[in-house]
């Protein structure tokens, strides 16, 4: 049996051979270079880590890009008809889908690395590395740098959850546009849903995925946005959602008749 990583390599090629992917990388590169320059002109005496904490606001860019790539990775094979020639190889469907998922995880990391490393480099050039005047963020996590690394990690968790959701929709519905649209709608609906089923009023609310996403809420308060959850609780809830999403994704992909 040949190596599983050759499957991942195949998937990476399919992602990186597309012009689309290079446009996404180009946009991220531009944002990573220009934003610190903009901060430099509009704000006085901020430090590297203040700049980086502001850069985190752009977490939606790698997220949306990865959602598009994840949905296309599965649904695109169906709409192009290439799924047939892909599945008639001596590999189980589980392995084929897993290789796609691994390649998407690598893609998420690539996008975040590009955005954060380049903007960190730019910020280091433009701003005082010895941290600017400490503000409220810095006090929450010990230092502004600590705050940044934790917030970045939590944003990665959010991205992972949304991308896994898009991957699931693509396996369920085999439609690229539907999967992307549904995921984006859910991102926007999150705050609305938690407003209606407010976890501080309704017990059920705290088990909704939306109440537990954005783990960064625990940087500001140990009991989160609603005062009824903890970091451990949210991680547990997200883990359950994550496992259910992936189980559904693989189960449907494995048993589906391919026409």
């Amino acid at each position: 049996m040949s190596n599983f990583f050759r499957l991942v390599h195949n998937e990476n090629i399919k992602i990186h051979a597309r012009t689309r992917t290079w446009i996404m990388l180009g946009i991220l590169l531009l944002v990573a270079i220009l934003m610190p320059v903009l901060f430099h002109f509009i704000s006085d005496g901020i430090g590297v880590w203040s700049s980086m904490n502001t850069m985190l606001q752009f977490w939606f860019l790698p997220t949306v890009f990865s959602i598009a790539v994840a949905a296309d990775s599965v649904a695109g094979e169906f709409s192009r008809g290439t799924i047939k020639l892909l599945l008639i190889r001596p590999w189980s469907r589980i392995n084929i889908l897993l290789s796609k998922y691994v390649s998407i995880l690598l893609f998420i990391l690539t996008l975040y690395a590009l955005l954060m490393l380049v903007s960190l480099g730019m910020s280091a050039l433009l701003f005082d590395t010895s941290s600017g005047p400490s503000d409220i963020l810095g006090e929450l996590a010990g230092s502004l740098a600590d705050y940044f690394w934790w917030a970045l990690l939590y944003r990665l968790v959010d991205t992972l959850m949304y991308v896994t959701m898009a991957f699931m929709f693509a396996s369920l519905f085999r439609s690229n546009s539907l999967s992307v649209a549904l995921t984006i709608v859910l991102i926007f609906m999150g705050s609305l849903v938690t407003l209606l089923a407010n976890p501080s009023q309704y017990e059920i609310g705290r088990y909704l995925i939306f109440a537990n996403l954005n783990l960064g809420q625990y940087l500001a308060s140990d009991t989160g946005n609603y005062g009824v959850t903890t970091l451990g609780f949210s991680i547990a809830v997200l883990a359950v959602y994550y496992v259910v999403f992936l189980a559904l994704t693989f189960w449907v992909f494995r048993k589906r008749d391919v026409a």
Partner: peptide
């Protein structure tokens, strides 16, 4: 149906890598 954004050769390499 093949990956139209890849060359014919790159397509064959895809399938070759799976064996």
């Amino acid at each position: 149906e093949m990956y139209s954004y890849l060359s014919g050769y790159a397509n064959l390499r895809q399938y070759a890598r799976m064996r």
